[in-house]
Design a protein around this nucleic acid. Structure first.
Lengths: 149, 149
DNA sequence: TAATAATAGGTGCATATACACCTATTACAT
DNA sequence: ATGTAATAGGTGTATATGCACCTATTATTA
């Protein structure tokens, strides 16, 4: 019987690696969304942040970060371009430590303008992947989030 | 009957959004792997690149990028730290346009040293998520990759 | 063979990601 | 009241990501 080359020992590693697979899939889905949203001027991450701000109705930065399941410091920097574009305003509250993120009228317009592109992007993924499968995948991804808790 | 607030129209958007969900899950899994690999000195992305170089046996940059399902320019920059650490060498071939990525002995050592941490990280995810579920999720993520083709 | 196309790769730019570490403010315990 | 937590947030640094655009080299075609 043949001796396995050292490479062979690693050949299956990628298909066993959750990180490799989810990162690769994440890049592809992000590219589909960013590409489809392009005419709107928003990237999918920015759209998600604005929608989060809207849903959560002027949350603090930390609260928003929790809601978006992202690191606070990542969010802090991500807010900058949105603030520069005038889509959000940062407001200091009574507790001077806390900053609230408020959606501006312009920001709400950006959401509304982007929504159809988001729907189109979702349809592309749903069509390629299968609507039922997509529902299952998203359920799985939601339960991945629960690992954190 | 009550009028729906505008927020209500968006409340379900996150749980319907493939991009939001996969990006959030990707961040969490990446954090688990990076955290667990920390003692090795490699991040999961770097480990994946080195393993890819090993498996593909001195591929060109573009070939490696395809194998890793990542953008060529992202890979180019990701190779820098690995080259600086002496884990890989970049070699120009006959065709002077092409550059091959060669794993050094030091690079192979880094892989071997990191492997147990990778196994541990995978176990953490498998335990939290369920080994069977994880297999299914990875299958789904692999089929997401096929959207690109 | 000269012009053109195709291929391989790099760089500028903007955003994404998060750890380590820092300051400011508020709450709490003695 | 004061010293100490705890909380909220920002910054430095390093890597990740990919589009637009560029150069260099090789292949193809008129």
């Amino acid at each position: 019987m043949k001796t396995k080359s050292d490479q062979d020992k690693f050949v299956n590693l990628p298909s066993l690696c959750p990180a490799f697979n989810i990162r690769a899939a994440s890049r592809i889905i992000t590219q589909i969304f960013d590409d489809t949203l392009r005419p709107s001027g928003l990237q999918i991450t920015q759209f998600a942040v604005l929608v989060g701000v809207h849903i959560m109705n002027t949350p603090s930065i930390s609260t928003l970060a929790k809601g978006l399941v992202m690191d606070r410091t990542t969010l802090t920097r991500g807010l900058k371009p949105l603030e520069n574009e005038g889509f959000i305003k940062i407001i200091t509250g009574e507790d001077k430590r806390t900053r609230f993120v408020k959606l501006t009228v312009k920001g709400k317009s950006a959401i509304d303008k982007t929504l159809p592109y988001w729907e189109k992007a979702r349809e592309i993924v749903a069509k390629e992947f299968g609507e039922n499968n997509l529902g299952g995948l998203i359920k799985d991804l939601e339960s991945v989030r629960e690992i954190k808790n």
